[in-house]
Amino acid sequence: MPRQITEMEIESAKMELPDVKTVRLKWPEGFDPDFKTGQFITVFWPDTPNYKRAYSLSSCALDRGFFEITIKRDGKMGTRMVDWAKAGDRLGVIPPVGKFLPVLEPDAHLLCIAGGSGVTPFRGFVREATRRKLSTRITILYSVRTTNDIIFNDEFRELAQQNPNFSFQVTCTRLSEQDPWTGRRGRIDAAWVKENIVDLPKTTFYACGPNALVDGTEHLVVSEMGLPKAQMKTEKWG
């Protein structure tokens, strides 16, 4: 049976970075779906119903009354969304699906590896864990080109203040040597991932971002460290 399509109004649209926008889609009257943090929705403009794109939810399942997706300006859809989507516009929405779900158990450790806009579902993970005051440990290792490309930087740092079990760590891959950034530089590598493992059997690895980053992480976890695939969850976006 085809999934139900619901038309939703854009309640607000906020630029996160010059090329990244968060769009909040208001649920229509009577719409109250059962869904999980980490899932994605598929959206389209009513004038081009055959042209659809899927975006991870950047909000969480505790957020009721709206979905939030955070979009980078790429391709035709990403450009239209970032440059033109505004409050009052309407989008077709296929409700959330997907298996990129946080294991929010008390003694679990979620080691989340993100590249670029691949960080967006992890905002939902941390938001839910923080609001529920869970003891689940969450670590985000986030690769960006420069300090200007860190999506949700302030929000993640604020969540880290509120939630002692959450750590937000950024590495920059294309900073000039003169840049005053004192944080980590270079790509995410096996050594950095291993440094952040506290209790391997209780760690679940999540990777979201470009195919190379996701494939590299999966290779490290499954092939190199020999962990079962159940401890590795991936979401590729290209």
């Binding site: 794109r53 790429d74 391709g75 035709k76 290209g238």
Partner: peptide, 10 residues
Amino acid sequence: AVVESVKTAS
């Protein structure tokens, strides 16, 4: 050329 899928543009 550009090819765009439901998940990404390349």
